[in-house]
Amino acid sequence: MNEPTDARLLRLHSADNVLTVIATLEAGETIRVGGDMVAVAARLAIGHKVAARDIAAGERIVKYGAPIGSATRAISAGEHVHTHNVQSDYIPTFARGEGAHYEHAQP
């Protein structure tokens, strides 16, 4: 298995397609992802995520071995994975309210 050997990136589960940044990465630095060297486009703080491989639009984002949302467009290996390219697949029991509160659907 081609594990990223970049010590600044952490894979939490073998099924994950994202890696977690564990040391702040500055713009212009290069990171090694799946054997490729990728330039960091903008500063990434600890806890942010990058793609472990190319991810197609609509594909599930998997972290902790579990889906945490879906890609809203194609994401290339090493690219920042965040709200600009991922949306919640939140289960239909709950709806997203405008004021950033979850509202429970009427039974």
Partner: peptide
Amino acid sequence: PGNAEGGLTTLE
């Protein structure tokens, strides 16, 4: 939801 602090992207 949508709280992006600390790199969290979704509530899930």
